[in-house]
């Protein structure tokens, strides 16, 4: 069976990570920011899987499982915060939340 070259997998992971990062930096809607974060997490998870397959180690897959649980917990907390934020400010625009007068 012909295997996918490891470079392809890593490049895909890099592209996904950059897309997520751009989303975090540019979106003002906090729901999209949270989704972009998920994309970044999954990109790093993908990189772990690719690397684990390449060298035949199980640690990479273990790491991905850990990231998965972590992401689930993070989303649960994040969504809760978003609901609280919407209740208090009637908006999901994160730039409104900045109260520092630097």
């Amino acid at each position: 069976m012909e295997t996918i070259p490891v470079e392809h997998g890593l490049i895909l992971a890099g592209i996904l990570f950059c897309l997520g990062l751009i989303g975090v930096l540019t979106r003002r809607n906090i729901v999209f920011v949270l989704m972009s974060l998920e994309v970044m997490l999954n990109a790093s998870g993908l990189a772990f899987i690719v690397a684990a397959t390449r060298w035949g180690h199980a640690e990479g897959q273990v790491m991905f499982l850990m990231i998965l649980t972590l992401a689930a917990a993070e989303v649960a907390v994040g969504l809760g915060l978003i609901i609280q934020m919407f209740r208090r400010y009637q908006t999901v625009d994160i730039s409104v939340l900045s109260e520092m007068k630097g």
Binding site: L21, V24, L25, T26, I94, S95, S98, E99, G102
Partner: peptide, 16 residues
């Protein structure tokens, strides 16, 4: 002091 804007995205950008 000018870098402490309170904008989360600005912090993330400087981090990156």
């Amino acid at each position: 002091v000018k870098t402490q804007t309170g904008s989360l995205r600005w912090y993330a950008l400087t981090l990156v």
